[in-house]
Amino acid sequence: MWALAGGVFLGWALGANDAANVFGTAVAARVIRFTTAALVASMAIVAGAYFEGAAGIETLAAVSTDSLEAAVLATICAAIAVTAMTLAKLPVSTSQAVVGAIIGTGLVAGQADWSGLPKILTCWVATPIAALLISCCVYALLRMLLNRVGMSILTRDNLLWMALIVAGAYGAYALGANNVANVTGVFYGTGPFDSTSQLALIGGISMALGALTFGRRVMMTVGADLVRLDAFAALVAVLSEAITVHMFAEIGVPVSTSQALVGGVLGVGIMRGVRGIDRTVLGRIALGWVLTPFCSGALSAAATLLLAK
């Protein structure tokens, strides 16, 4: 069981970071209390991981090696890459870091399985694009519904508050379902770990603990520093992120919730006719997307080589 420690640590960090993509805007805007958000998020993460996490775990297991040591190494290298990119303030995807690390380890060990990679790469590229398109549709649909029904500003606020909780719970469920593979997927079929539901549960709980214990700071950063959205925009962005991430969970490919959220926010911007999107910010996001899998892959390859000697 100790072999899972790296995965559990990665899960904890992932939960702390990615719960912010689901509830960050609402918590930072003080629309929802952190305690409420963290409780809802952690329960939904565990549920998502347990009920729908198996497909992603199987996909990651397909590209990884069947050695327990390589799996441990891959998770540790991914965690280091994620931490380094976070310290460099670059947007980082745990999914990309984990896949990069698996490929790096596999390349050196001569055990890399490339068959699942095109599917994963296609999904990575498709994530922000899908989120953007879904965001435009969700925006148009919700706007039409809200503007069709006559209500007071108080009723509208209450309605949005409930919708934010539901969308946040759904987003956390999708996060658990999709991203649990990053946490414990590499261990599937290695050593004693041959049950997807057991790995999904352990991964889900570690992510939930991350959201509960360390989610507040990241939520405040995501909501207050990176994007400041009104309640309606936050709802659209979170709902589109959740739908996108859940869609990829069904396909069985772990994707980045951060990238999905960026796509969702851009969709809101497009629907509101925002011009002059900050290209520096977009450039940094693109840099993070490209650098994360390469850094993580290089790190795990180097570590495997070093250990082999």
Binding site: A29, R30, V31, I153, L154, D157, L160, W161, D230, A231
Partner: peptide, 11 residues
């Protein structure tokens, strides 16, 4: 209680 902080400010 009641209302989002933004709406509170507006009202």
């Amino acid at each position: 209680r009641a209302l989002f902080p933004e709406s509170r400010g507006d009202v």
